[in-house]
Amino acid sequence: MDSAGGGGDERSGAFEGDDASGGGQQQQQTRSFSFKVVLLGEGCVGKTSLVLRYVEDKFNERHISTVQASFLQKKINVSGNRVTQAIWDTAGQEKFHALGPIYYRHSNGAILVYDITDKDSFEKVKIWVKELKKMLGNEICLCIAGNKSDLERERTVSTEEAESYAAMVGATHFYTSAKLNHNIEELFLHLTEQMITSSLGTERKQTGRRNVVVVEQEQPPSPRPTSKGCCG
């Protein structure tokens, strides 16, 4: 995979000018963020399809070239900030549930996926949310994704229940469909924006070891074409 070289390329040429770390020029500065996003959800809820649709924009398994979907990276530009998203898939089987904390420690965001036709998978999401809140408090941005929204007729998790629960725990709720490519881009974009806000908030506190690498850099004189989602 090209993940190793990615970070370096992204920041090359960052220090072309003088080191200007003056405080008041926020607008002119481009920042680079790298976020870790964990993907939680029971098996068969479509985690893999969701992330592959996002990163590769492909659904049918025959068309997908990547060998693996367990660790994927995508670079996007969000309001002038360069963001590298590292998406960590987790094993959703019940027997691996106890390993959750190892996966999601130091993560900036979590996407909790459930299947709208499967009530159990939603209950599982509730358990994870509880765990995440306990382990990471409010440091982590949560998004709940009701996947397989194309199977509306077989829905067993009611809209009100899901949305009210998400609002209660401070998560954003999305209905997604990996099959129809519905709402997935929006989901990741929203999560990224949230993560940027929250990391800027924690950065001011400067507590202990940072797990986000924030590199300040001056805006290059001629701004590069900010095509969204291009990853070389």
């Binding site: 398994e61 997908i64 060998v67 367990s70 898939d89 089987q93």
Partner: peptide
């Protein structure tokens, strides 16, 4: 491991298969 799994399954490997 991922390559071996890819040959055994003909589909992208998720963590569900990788971790075991």
């Amino acid at each position: 491991i991922l390559e071996a799994l890819g040959m055994s399954k003909q589909a992208p490997t998720s963590a569900d298969d990788f971790l075991p």
